[in-house]
Design a protein around this nucleic acid. Structure first.
Length: 184
DNA sequence: GATAAGATCATCT
DNA sequence: GATGATCTTATCA
């Protein structure tokens, strides 16, 4: 197994989002190691993407997305759930990939959504800005699992009727027929 | 089966 | 003071 390095993330966000499928998240929490396979991602890129926090300009919260590729952007949503993103593309270009669902050993439904996977992985805002290419607490690995191109499904993101041209873009990716993918 | 509402708080206006 | 990159439970057809 091989740790994903900065070069992997320093590329087109859509490419990274697709290639992250089948990769593994590794989380060291105290003496415990938690791992899981990425089965669903979503891309948020650039100032033109109205669904992205960064489209409204740089703020103290979103400046992580303007930072180095490979670092973690963790955001508390609705006061209850964290979302785990990995920053992509070159520095000062705001883009990130949201990890939406993870396949875990055991119960499939433990991490089939952005909020739940963060709870499962004990991810909180202490890890915001963590560099996953050097961290010993949180990183990503390539375990040579092959995902066929025909198994990658691209779908439109939900709730973007106001972002007219963006609606055509298929920026949500998941592995076909995987039980862990979030529903609805 | 589908849709609606409630929980709850950091961040922005 | 309003709002959101969510999830669960309740209610209706």
């Amino acid at each position: 197994m091989k740790k994903l390095d900065r070069g992997f993330f320093n590329r087109n966000t859509l490419k990274v989002a697709q290639e992250l499928l089948g990769k593994f998240i590794v989380r060291r929490y105290g003496k415990k190691i938690i791992t899981g396979k990425v089965v669903e991602t979503e891309a948020y890129m650039g100032p033109l993407d109205l669904a992205s926090h960064a489209s409204r300009g740089k703020t103290p919260r979103t400046e992580i997305m303007f930072g180095k590729p490979g670092i973690a952007y963790i955001y508390l949503i609705y006061g209850m759930y964290y979302c785990f993103n990995v920053v992509t593309e070159k520095k000062s270009y705001p883009a990130a990939v949201l990890i939406r669902a993870i396949e875990t050993s055991g119960n499939e439904k433990l991490a089939n959504g952005p909020g739940k996977l963060c709870y499962f992985f004990k991810i909180d805002k202490l890890l915001n800005g963590e560099d996953t290419t050097t961290s010993k607490k949180l990183w990503l690995e390539d375990r040579r699992e092959k995902i066929k191109k025909s198994e990658i499904i691209a779908r439109k993101r939900i709730g973007v009727d106001y972002a007219q041209h963006s609606q055509h873009y298929l920026w949500r990716f998941y592995i076909k027929d995987n039980l862990c993918v979030s529903k609805r």
